[in-house]
Design a binder for these strands. Sequence first.
DNA 1: CGAAAACTGTCGGATCTGCGACAGTGCCGA
DNA 2: TCGGCACTGTCGCAGATCCGACAGTTTTCG
Lengths: 212, 212
Amino acid sequence: MTREDFESLPGDDVEALRRFAIRRTYPPGATLFRQGDRARELFIVERGELELVYETFSERLVVQMLHAGSSVDQLAILLDVPYPYSAVTLSEATLLRLRLDTIRTLEEMFPEIAARWLRLLAHALDRAHQRLLELAGRSAVEQVSHLLLHESAERNEPTVDVTQGELAATLALSRQTVSRAFRDLAREGAIKPERRRVRLLDLEKLREHVPH
Amino acid sequence: MTREDFESLPGDDVEALRRFAIRRTYPPGATLFRQGDRARELFIVERGELELVYETFSERLVVQMLHAGSSVDQLAILLDVPYPYSAVTLSEATLLRLRLDTIRTLEEMFPEIAARWLRLLAHALDRAHQRLLELAGRSAVEQVSHLLLHESAERNEPTVDVTQGELAATLALSRQTVSRAFRDLAREGAIKPERRRVRLLDLEKLREHVPH
DNA sequence: CGAAAACTGTCGGATCTGCGACAGTGCCGA
DNA sequence: TCGGCACTGTCGCAGATCCGACAGTTTTCG
């Protein structure tokens, strides 16, 4: 892959880190850390998928979905603040775990890695920021279209594996509203909803629903 | 001030940077840079207020308001991507401008400043992120209460100088909805709307409207 | 001073979303 | 095979927000 990959750490860096990390595999549904816990460890996804979940007393909002190569949650560690959200595995997942003190050592040993890491982090945050910005004040169909295009492009696949309920949680919408949006988009041939999956049929029609 | 101030650069750093910067004063309403422009300069606010505005073909959303001590837009420069939003002065404002090549030099000269800067940036982004997260799926009164408390705490003042229209743009609401929220909050004695200003009368009552 | 512009308050209708409810469908394990 | 369970599709109602409209007030500026 020739393009610069801001999503994940360079392979060389991961290799360098691997020696200091614990590798472990988790079943689906495992909680890696809870919102509010002190940030002591860093996780790098080798395989499988995670969900970052932000919870208030009444709501559950999916902040981000992570796939292989992503890392969480550098920021909390670098700033020494509690995790702002919980992390839950969606599928079976293999992760590298790095303890906090190990990381401190690493920063000293490999300052150049730390620098890249910070940049990476800044970029990831910026994307999340952008995503939220673009969602503000938009209708359900617009939000759904945007997210589908985004996820599809992210993995370079014409389908997005997600339930309507999960999608609703990600966009702070109700499941029924997502269902309605799917129906409307399906009517015009832009997508084809399937069980636990959406097939993107006509990217252009989808894009018509996304401002810009 | 004893608390660690993540909002702005340490005074020493600003001093160190000042030697390389151009200081200039702008009238209200001046545009410093436009969304989509290549990021060539960094701005540090010495005096006055700025607004960061994200625009789509149909909407205008205020991303953030900046006061003295804040700096923009490190991220775009460090990552060499276009400005994600425009910057406009709200009042007369004095700014330090740092050209891109100067900054590159600085990074080499003062790596420790660059490191602090990145952390600062990461933190600022995280706050913006949090702000947007907390807004997702909330009612107008909740959003307005949250933002008022936030702005008031930020400047340590019991009043917030802002028009209802600006507030609406920040929250992606309509001006009328903000007006209604003000009326409701005023009825219960939590705030007192004035022209171009809101006076916070009862922080506890306001906080009752903010989830957590 | 006077006119224009900006800001605020409010109304009513149209639209959208949330929510409860219920039925249908496919998948998985006993 | 047969339930259970998770996921989906749809309805109708209630509530919130948007939008256009208009009036009243304050500020700005010539």
